[in-house]
Structure formats: C-alpha cells, structure tokens
Design a protein around this nucleic acid. Sequence first.
DNA 1: CTTGACCTTGTCGCAGCGTCAACGTTTCTA
DNA 2: TAGAAACGTTGACGCTGCGACAAGGTCAAG
Lengths: 249, 249
Amino acid sequence: MRIGEIAALVGVTSRAVRHYHHIGLLPEPARQANGYRAYTVREAVLLARIRRLTEIGLSLDEVRDVLADDAGRELGEVLAELDADLARQEREIQERRQVLAALLEAPLTSDGPLSPALAALLDHAPATTSPAAAKDREHLALLDAAGDGAGAELFAALRPLAENPGVLALYERLDALEGAGADDPRIAPLAAELAAAVPDEVLAVIPEGEPSATGLGRVLLDDYPPAQRAVVRRVMEELAERVRRRGTA
Amino acid sequence: MRIGEIAALVGVTSRAVRHYHHIGLLPEPARQANGYRAYTVREAVLLARIRRLTEIGLSLDEVRDVLADDAGRELGEVLAELDADLARQEREIQERRQVLAALLEAPLTSDGPLSPALAALLDHAPATTSPAAAKDREHLALLDAAGDGAGAELFAALRPLAENPGVLALYERLDALEGAGADDPRIAPLAAELAAAVPDEVLAVIPEGEPSATGLGRVLLDDYPPAQRAVVRRVMEELAERVRRRGTA
DNA sequence: CTTGACCTTGTCGCAGCGTCAACGTTTCTA
DNA sequence: TAGAAACGTTGACGCTGCGACAAGGTCAAG
C-alpha cells in the first residue's frame, strides 16, 4: 500500500500519516525503489488504533503513552482522566453560556459587558452627553475590571448619587472647566457642592491613605485637565476630611 | 503607569499586554525617557474592555471587530454566534463523554477501543493464544476502522463461527503452517474445513470480485507467510464458489 | 508526449500567549 | 554605596495537529 491508500483505508489524510511518522508515533515502513513508503497490515492496524484513540479525544502524546504501555491498564487511567477533563470543560462552557445569557438579556452598553453591580448603577443614572460623566463611567468601568472586588460595594453606595438629578448640572459645570486654569475661581464652589452630593455610604468604601499614593488614584487624577483635576482632588480631600470627622465623632 | 502596573490592575500578564500591542489590538502608549511604556487611563480602560471580552470567550480577532465597530450592535451578533458555538461544543463533549462511558463500561481490550459490533463478536470468541487467531483479530480491527460501514454486518455474520469451539483446532493447524512451504500437503484439507466452517450468512457480505483486486484484500493476504497465505486464498476462492453456486441455485 | 494524479522533503501558518535569552533600569537592602 | 532583586526592553522559539504551499520526482492513461 502507498500512503494515500492506507490513509484512505483508515480514514485520515496522508499528511496526518506523515505527521505521525515525523513525531515517531507510527514507525516508518520500508521504502519502494522509487522512494515511496510501502505500507503493510502492520502499519494499517497501528494507524487504525491511533485513529480510534485520537477520535475519542486523546492527544497524540497520550496515544503514544497508551500504545507504548503493553498493559491495557494505562488506557483506563487515561480515559478516566480524559472524562474528568471533559466534565470540567462541560461545566466551564455551561458557566460561560450562563454569563452570555445574562449579557444578552441586559441592554448592551457601548463600553462592553460590565459586572451586574455596575450595570445596575449605570442603568439608574440619567442619560447625558456630558464628557465628564462619560469619563466617570470609564473610570468606574476600570475599577470594575480591576478585580479587587471592592467595586461592587462602591457601586451600590453610589446609587443615590446616580439617582440624584442635581448631578447633571454639576457635571455640566465640570465640563465648563475643561480648558480652564488651575486657579479658576469656579473650582472651589464646585468641589464643595460635589463633595456635599456624595452620600455617606460611599465614605465607608473609600480606600484609606492618600489617593495619589496608590498608582491607580494618581493615574485617574492625571486623566483630567488641570482645572478639573483640581476639582477632583479637592473633592477627594473633602471626603477624606469627612471620613476623619466621622471617625472622631 | 508601567506595564506591570497596568497588567496587575486589569488582571492580565505583562506578556499579554505586549502581545496586544504586537497585534495592534491595544495602541502603544508614549514612552518614558528610559524606554519604558507609560500607560494612562485611556489604555487601562481599553485593556479592561479587552479582558472582559476575552474572558467571555471572544477571540482576539473578534475583540478587535467589536472594538472597531463603533455601534454596539456588532457585539450582539458576535455574542449570539459565540453562544451557538459553545452550544455546539457542549453537545460534542456530551457525545464524546457518552462514547467514553460506553468504553469504560466494556472490558478494555489490548487492541484499544473497538466498535460495539466487533467488541460483541470478540467477546463471544473463546480465549486463545493462537498467533493466527491474533492476526485474525487484527485484520478484523482494521476492517472495523476502515469505516466503510460494511464491518458491522460482517461481524454479526461471523458470530456463529466465533462460538464454534471447533475453530480453535483449525487455528492451531493454521499456526502449524507458519514456516511451511506453499506446496505443503496440509494446505488443501485445512482450507476445505475452514471454508466449510464459515456460516452462510457471511457470504452475503463478502465483497464481490477478486479479493486481490481491491488493495485491502491483497495487502491482507500479503500479511501471511506462504503456506498460510495459500490456505487463506483457497478459503476465499471456495467462498466465492459458494457465492456463485448460491447465486445460480 | 502530455496530462493528471500520485509521491517526496521542507517550510510556514494557526491562537494566545509562556518562557527563555541577553541586556538595561530602578529600587530595596546590607 | 555597592550589590542584589525586581522591574523594563526586544527577539525568538515552543506548544497542538495538522493544512497548505513550494518545487520537484514517478507513474498510468489518453
């Protein structure tokens, strides 16, 4: 038999047969005078075994192990292991499909899929085209993905703020500061009003220490132009002050 | 932020981030004077989106499509497609696990897993250490894997032969011919008795034409030493004769 | 004699990074 | 203050199981 014949007989491609030769899974048969491989029943039987095993789902390495092991016992182990592996994969797929179903249920935001906690928060926030609000949402999405797990509590605590219709005006005032200087007189009053709007529940989940100490806080601040950055910094200072007062009270 | 920081923040490895740069999925940020990449919130938000999407199971190419598409509609399509794909994978895994369960149920032969039809046949054959019988089993396993589908009927038809205790003696006489010449006097009577032992049901599933015409028949014959080959050829001729007689009768 | 269907070896490609290698930078520690 | 540990840089190979191509040689049929 030539390679195409044995391949067709067993139901694999010639390329696969050569591949099995290459990795030493199937011994190379003798050659004809023209250089063609001359296959016998020996190789055909071996190749058929290989195909049956790979069809079940064994890797070529596992097939090699099973074939090398003279005892048929190894096969049982490998199959049991394989079944366990498949069971795990099945669970993973089911979990992912559940996540997918939940995502397809909810309205798709342009920021991609979000955690349920953040999705609930944004769902209750009023629609707006404010760039500052958009930036806020980006920052929240980043916290969401940061995976430190503290996100969910923060999002729940921010719920009253999101439902407060007054924040829209504050966002607009923040937008107005986009090109302003760090010494703009509108900074102080806006920061005061913003800090006042933050509900007490949020204080509990604010990380301690200077925000600029952690890399994330510094980077988030750096994301704003000067005047807006000054506002955000003042708000954070104000909140820190409230935390201290609450601690001593 | 440096690469390690943004990677830890979002929950991927630095290597993955560099990989995303390499394939153009995440834009390269500006560099610091020392050559280090200097990340901002912009990249962090993007990277977080990428991670969420890949976590769901999107390929990097799909992630690129979703991110490139300004409309959030594309995402829905991709997710639906992904869910269909996962459903298909789930079905495949379940099917494979069923096959596995059936295999683990049956006793494991040293020839590896076999089709139910052949397994049933071998299960009813008496235990023997005859080399000729072993060769027969190999040939049957090869037919089993040949996938032409004609195997199952043949195996069913061979059932009476397997259960016939007389075949053991015939196998032993065949074994005795291993080193004999093609003109050995024991060939003719053994062939006659073997052919007589083959049940009529087998005749219906024997492929027509000369066995040496098909590649498989020739190769199977070549697998035997001369005297045994002569026996097998005579048996096949005898069976072909019976087919003809049955056809005209 | 040509055409087409085989065969040969060798190489690249695939997905998504992990893992060296070989080297420069920053930062902590003794 | 020096040295080590822990970062960063680019570049390249490895993994799985072959598919696909290149650039031929071989063989049977028209």
